[in-house]
Amino acid sequence: MREVIIGDRIKFKRSKLLLIASVFPLFVFIMNFSDFYLRLDFNRELAQELHTTEWSFLVISCHWAMFIMVPLSITIFASKIVNIEHEANTWKILFALPISKYSIYLSKFIYLFLLCMFSATFIVGSLLFIGIFLDFNGPIPWDLILKQAFYPYIVSFPLMAFQLWVSMVCQNQIIPISLGIIFTLSGFFLQNVKWLFWVYPIWGTPILPSDEFNKVIINTDLSFFFIMSLTVGLLFLIGGMIHFSKRELR
């Protein structure tokens, strides 16, 4: 396993993977920074309407950009990581090596997960920057910021496993990328169908505004989504891994 992970690492040279992994959170940053920078007073009023701080209002505000960005970025990361192999036509080399196909598969998943964690860290930095730059009141709510940055990814475990699987078994990456875009767009309309794994990113947030928009409430459904994410994610990961290892080379 370790050998495969180290070998895979070399393949990412000159592949601009970290640049791509920065573009998505950069989008979240720009959307929110420009909004808060240009309409600071307006946003302050909204925060007051919700009887909350500027920091938690930022956390609430950035969520819509995140639940669009997270599934899209997972789609692109998975495709990008796997397509190195498709493009180079190297599956036949890898499969003829004395290493298990499971480890080939898991290594790809680990890198997909790491890229997501990298993006989440970028989000943490973005939120901190906005708040500090615009001189938000009160202490930095580390807890909220970390949760907002990482939760959307954590509940997207099934999406990661699913996108990885489709990217691995489809030679043509148009298929997983189209699927990922369909998931992202349809998730917005299907967000109340809570057993659809691709709507989870929408629910992966620590706090929400109440329906009356007069207070901030804690997202009590989170544990449900964490458990679902873990179960469905493991199912897809293990299922995808077994399917991949049993498949024949073209």
Partner: peptide, 23 residues
């Protein structure tokens, strides 16, 4: 097996290094 396959964006040495690490 069949037509050559290789990581075109890497050098010859890096290509070999990947397999060397895996083996």
């Amino acid at each position: 097996v069949e037509s050559p396959s290789y990581y075109g964006h890497l050098t010859g040495y890096e290509n070999l290094k990947i397999i060397q690490r895996m083996l």
